[in-house]
Design a protein around this nucleic acid. Structure first.
Lengths: 220, 220
DNA sequence: ACCTGAACACCGTTCAAGT
DNA sequence: ACCTGAACACCGTTCAAGT
């Protein structure tokens, strides 16, 4: 079992505490999925669970600790993207695309992982697995560290940005570029219809460029 | 002249309005530089300028519009990194590193640019110049668009993340990794001392990998 | 035309009080 | 041990009133 479920045995007859860390984390995910991450306030959590808005402070030191625990829980799904076939490029590519899809489903998640005060438990598992994929592919430790850090930064940062700008009408940007004076912005007005058409495609192109370059540097 | 200074002639004898868009933008930059971006509140702006906290609404529709105008102003410095020597790789590299340094100096800037409702004027100038560097280097329009989008996403997203995690004690992360059980996290515990040592170096390695891959794809 | 000031509808967090 | 409820110190924004 990957995650310790400290309150898994809470289905006893005794009343016990009405709240638990897991119950609060579940509510966070439910509210964020339904109404976006900004809807997760302590007052909203209280009304969702029929409990006082300040009750969360009996289980977490502050809101940020609850949000980090929620991020860690969401990463459980990311671990399912790990597989090791011996082909480091294919394995890395599959894992990255799977992790990205989770980041896109949960805006703010990647940001939270990167700025967490301590590494999240499931992120550590994910990082260990990714390092393992490179090591199994024949990278020495220094090579593996560089490949891992660059790939992780690209995946985390670009997906985080894409999640934040999702549905932000890239159509409006293209129109704005096309409407600029052509003499002052010759390249931008000309290329306008081709710009920001598909962020997923752009991510995948960048990823393949990166993996190809890592491959070339490794063979050299 | 790159930026229209609509209130540049405000040094007349008549009293005129006490506030202007430029005065508010200046105050934003001053406060953010001194106390961080979170210190920029409407009440803080009011006390800084000796004016009512709600006076900003006479010059901007809402706070976000003021912050976008501030971001646009900060990008004036980014335009100084543009040069065209004919060597697209060297020119791109120099521009990217210059732009990154500005993003790092102003946390939240890259995020604001990416999520702005409309493209910022100086960002459009920067994008046009970057597309021009690739076109001058012999890229056709489709190649230039891909190279531009991938490079821009990498620079914007990774620098934005690095600005947010600056001084977030990567030392603590390394210690946390080193303290994990070695049997469960074999690669992470072993590589711990080498991880997250220098984000600037990691950014530069990733950029060079990307540019090398773009070069290889272009020659092919 | 520009600015004020009170008010509104929110936030996260603390702390004494209840059970 | 756990939860409540009032209170504190903030937010961005609206709007009638001033000059």
């Amino acid at each position: 079992m990957l995650v310790r479920m400290s309150d898994a045995a809470a289905t006893t007859a005794e009343p016990g505490p009405r709240l638990s860390r897991d119950v609060l984390i579940d509510a966070c995910i439910r509210i964020a999925d339904a109404e976006g991450p900004d809807a997760v306030t302590l007052r909203r959590l209280g009304s969702e669970l029929g409990v006082d808005p300040t009750a969360v402070y009996r289980h977490f030191r502050h809101k940020e600790e609850l949000l980090e625990a929620t991020a860690d829980r969401l990463l459980v799904a990311a671990l399912e993207g790990v597989r090791s076939t011996g082909d480091w490029k294919a394995d890395t590519r599959a894992l990255v695309m799977h992790v990205r899809s989770i980041y896109l489903q949960h805006p703010g998640l990647a940001q939270r992982i990167a700025t967490a005060s301590n590494p999240l438990a499931n992120e550590a598992r994910l990082s260990d697995a990714t390092l393992g994929i490179f090591r199994d592919g024949g990278f020495d430790e220094d090579e593996a560290v560089t490949a891992f850090e660059v790939t992780e930064a690209y995946t985390l940062a670009v997906s985080s940005m894409d999640a934040a700008t999702r549905d932000e009408s890239s159509e409006a940007w293209r129109r704005a570029f096309a409407a600029l004076p052509a003499d002052e912005y010759p390249h931008l007005t000309s290329a306008a219809p081709k710009l920001y058409v598909d962020p997923d495609d752009r991510f995948e192109r960048g990823l393949d460029l990166l993996l190809d370059a890592i491959d070339a540097a490794h063979r050299r």
